[in-house]
């Protein structure tokens, strides 16, 4: 069972080096215990481009598709037996990156 753990942020480029070190240590733990699938940090919402390729010619629009006070600044995809395991890992991840996270199951 895989879960997406999204990191919720409200200040661009606010990650500190302490947080980065904690995140690395947390990631090492995920790998060692077989929970690691993938993870990454994302650029700020203003670096986003919305693409609409449904028409004859693709359209490119600068900026996020919706302006919000909070956004996704990174994520983990973890492997966990059930939600209890996923929630425990997410709590540790939230502590490591010093931000709230959201856990959602993959279908």
């Amino acid at each position: 069972m895989q879960y997406l753990v999204s990191v919720i942020d409200d200040t661009p480029n606010s990650a500190t080096s302490d947080e980065a070190a904690d995140i690395n240590a947390f990631n090492d733990g995920l790998r060692a215990d077989g929970h690691w699938v993938f993870a990454g940090g994302l650029g700020a919402p203003r670096t986003a481009t919305v693409v609409d390729g449904r028409g004859a010619e693709a359209m490119f629009i600068d900026g996020p598709f919706v302006e919000t006070k909070e956004w996704l600044s990174g994520f983990w995809i973890i492997e966990a037996a059930d939600l209890d395991v996923a929630l425990k890992l997410a709590a540790a991840g939230s502590k490591a990156c010093n931000r709230r996270v959201e856990v959602r199951p993959f279908l």
């Binding site: 879960y3 059930d82 209890d84 856990v103």
Partner: peptide, 14 residues
């Protein structure tokens, strides 16, 4: 069902 909330008595810690 979708998030796979487990069917068990929690561990002593929890």
């Amino acid at each position: 069902k979708a998030a796979r909330i487990p069917y068990r008595v929690p561990s002593a810690d929890d």
